[in-house]
Nucleic acid binder design. Sequence first.
DNA 1: CTGGATGCAAAGGGTTTGCACGTTT
DNA 2: AAACGTGCAAACCCTTTGCATCCAG
Lengths: 124, 124
Amino acid sequence: MDIYRNSKQRDRVLEIVRDAKIHPTADWIYEKLKKEFPSLSMGNVYRNLNILVDQKKINKLHFGSTFDRFDGNIDRHYHFICEKCKAIIDLDLPIDEKLNDRVIKYKANSHKIQFYGICDKCEK
Amino acid sequence: MDIYRNSKQRDRVLEIVRDAKIHPTADWIYEKLKKEFPSLSMGNVYRNLNILVDQKKINKLHFGSTFDRFDGNIDRHYHFICEKCKAIIDLDLPIDEKLNDRVIKYKANSHKIQFYGICDKCEK
DNA sequence: CTGGATGCAAAGGGTTTGCACGTTT
DNA sequence: AAACGTGCAAACCCTTTGCATCCAG
């Protein structure tokens, strides 16, 4: 694959991932998009998700679960993960720019942080 | 499963995970242990790994790859991940006990950090 | 002797891929 | 027209599971 063409399906996959605040799974996107494109296939959803990751328009997340989740927010940010419902929530904590320098044995040029706890909804 | 009995295979799986500094995969453990127990099956390796995780003697890691990796170091620690060879290396950075408090919208009671960069070996 | 542990093989879940056809440029 | 995008189904990879047998307590 050299050049990417336009496709309505891919445009919609991107919009859906961006609009969803839940870091959706491929299956969730498929179910949603199948209403607009009844002939849609899972394979195509996966293909487009991978293309969008390749284009750096979205990110792939793999925390804990057996399946991938996708993040339409490509700005650097940390995540809060609910230990009960497994929701992944974007945090607006400032990025700790000095954190990488704390690693002395290696040259760290980026880092990820996940916080764990119980989300508002599960807290009741 | 109510009570766990002793089994030579499980004891060795634990030892192997603890001794390996590479956060091994189930397959790596299987290949290593098959030399000692020629009739060993993959299913049994997975079963024992899950039991050891259940017993909180080891941890399961899932960073990036499609397969699980296991960590015999159950003390809290951060990881450095080589972006080239995908090695996962334990760091001896002190745990930032105040970090959880930076999350104000939720009550975070733990966190994980992964640092990314190039490891010594890949740096040449 | 009872119930967990094992080997084997099959099934499972999520993701990828080959192919023929459809669509964009 | 050439090359990418799509649907379909099969293949893939890693992991789990059912069952008969084995072995620890």
